[in-house]
Design a protein around this nucleic acid. Structure first.
Lengths: 198, 198
DNA sequence: AGATAAAATCAAGCGCGCATGCTGGTTTTG
DNA sequence: CAAAACCAGCATGCGCGCTTGATTTTATCT
């Protein structure tokens, strides 16, 4: 048989991490208590404590889930990208920016900032962030069909990602989409120039 | 008379907000309790509560102080900027980046992220952030001697600031200076191109 | 195969620690 | 002497981790 108890266990864990991610994104770090997450997931606090012995385990699990989901979503969106030329560059930049202004990033932001003052959490979070950063960079290079051997290309792409991160940060203080749009347009033009020049 | 008791009061308040900023930067949001800040400032908890009735008042005061100090420091560094040409552009970008990777920004980051889930704090913090953002943008335009009427100039400068913000965010996860340097160099080159083209 | 032991999952309650805010008292200043 | 600045203690609330108990699933033995 398919071991239905393992099934149920997995499902409970999943509901918990999903609830934790949502809670982090909308209630923030301090607002994310195990009791609240458990209630949102529809399980008791004891059950949560069973699957994630400590609060840090729950948070780390949530971040891991968010990272994973982020990557999967990227693959999907990458497949549905437009044709060639400047519109494609702009679409790619838009996609990258969307990563950093979405709810998963908001959740991750809470954890990252909190982890900056919590060594033990930092140790668990830092590798996740590093992997995500590398993957996104790789995806960006691939989608832009960029030649990283050209001088300046790699650096410009990295800068683009950092700009997107900056957008994500600005978003937590309020909706920024109106301010963002012209910047993205302009930057896509510049980026296309750097990619294609010479 | 110079009312020395007002003098003392001011001094105590200053020590408190300074201690609060330091504490935010190195111990994070949750680690910044009024008791710890008061001890770091060398006053009793009751005194802190006297000057800042609630914890939120203390945090808001600290952020205000950090914002103010940030602006003053900028003026000073702006005066000591190099001559003209590409080196100047690079120096300006470096200066802007330094703003966002310094301790004042780290402290502000903690407050901003926490404020995203705290409406009452958000209301006090948002105008500060807006003012700081506008001022920095203005300073950047002035130092770069940019002509904002040229299409794309304003957007590129804004993008530069967002990239700097992104650097600041990346810094809380670990030292990033090595990765940053080539990106800044390249970015300065691109920015100089946008500023100078017509 | 059937039964029983063992393990896993979920629920509820308890106690500890800690941060905040408040109140009453003491010192310093004008 | 009056007022402001400063300090010590108390009370409330809350989150976390632990322990106990009940229910279901898996494993083992005859």
């Amino acid at each position: 048989m398919t071991a239905p108890q393992q099934e149920r266990s997995k499902a409970t864990r999943l509901r918990l991490v999903e609830a934790a991610v949502d809670c982090l994104a909308e209630k923030g770090w301090s607002g994310t208590t195990v009791a609240i997450v458990a209630r949102a997931a529809g399980v008791s606090r004891g059950a949560a404590q069973h699957h994630f012995p400590t609060r840090e385990d729950l948070i780390a699990g949530a971040l891991e889930f968010a990272t994973e989901t982020q990557l999967i979503e990227n693959r999907a969106r990458a497949a549905a990208l437009p044709e060639h030329g400047l519109t494609r560059v702009e679409a790619v930049v838009n996609m990258l920016v969307d990563i950093y202004v979405g709810p998963y990033f908001r959740a991750a932001l809470q954890v990252w900032v909190a982890a900056s003052a919590d060594p033990s959490l930092h140790a668990r979070v830092q590798p996740l962030e590093a992997r995500l950063g590398r993957t996104i960079h790789h995806v960006a290079v691939e989608l832009l069909r960029a030649d990283e051997r050209k001088p300046g290309v790699r650096e410009t792409i990295q800068g683009t990602l950092d700009m997107a991160r900056g957008f994500g940060l600005a978003t937590v203080l309020g909706d920024d989409s109106a301010r963002r749009r012209p910047i993205v347009r302009q930057w896509a033009r510049v980026l296309a120039g750097v990619l294609g020049e010479q």
